[in-house]
Amino acid sequence: MATPSRTRESDPVEAAQMQRWLERVRAQDTRALRSLYDLTSARLMSVSAQILKDEAEAADVLQEVYLKVWQQAADYSGVGSVWGWLIVITRNASLDRLRSRQRKREESLDDLDPVDIGEQSHHNAVDSGIERCLEVLNDNARQAIVLSYIYGFSHHEVQQRLERPLGTVKAWIRRGLQELKRCLEA
């Protein structure tokens, strides 16, 4: 049974602890990296696996990610959350791996669970602001954003899957992200 994931964006105690660990990682404290790993690896594994659709490759990417955290902990300047920083690193590393394999997407849009693409997940016990704002978007923008952000589809791949012109897809994503931002700031 899938483990329900908890919302992390409003846990200041955890956020402060993660910042302290990262400072110690900068000082080359392996135990601090281990603490960070224990807290974050399951979520980052999920982020990578959604893009790569291959657990072994996702684990490989995760190894690269934590090595990068070790080497570049000083790059985190305290702006934004440690979680956000880690997810960006993981997503980009996964995209690099995906593109380097020049893998063609084999799953069709139909193979993806509708709950993955457009509808709100029932795993969350706590309602998330971005989930509410995502629901307000039109279907096209919502699908395009989820395919791009969660699954790492390139604009070209989104265009092929949704069978719309590339310019239209780019516009959906661009405007959709701005509408999300406005909705969250409202």
Partner: peptide, 8 residues
């Protein structure tokens, strides 16, 4: 980031 919470 919270969008990832929709997945286990």
């Amino acid at each position: 980031m919270p969008l990832h919470n929709r997945y286990p």
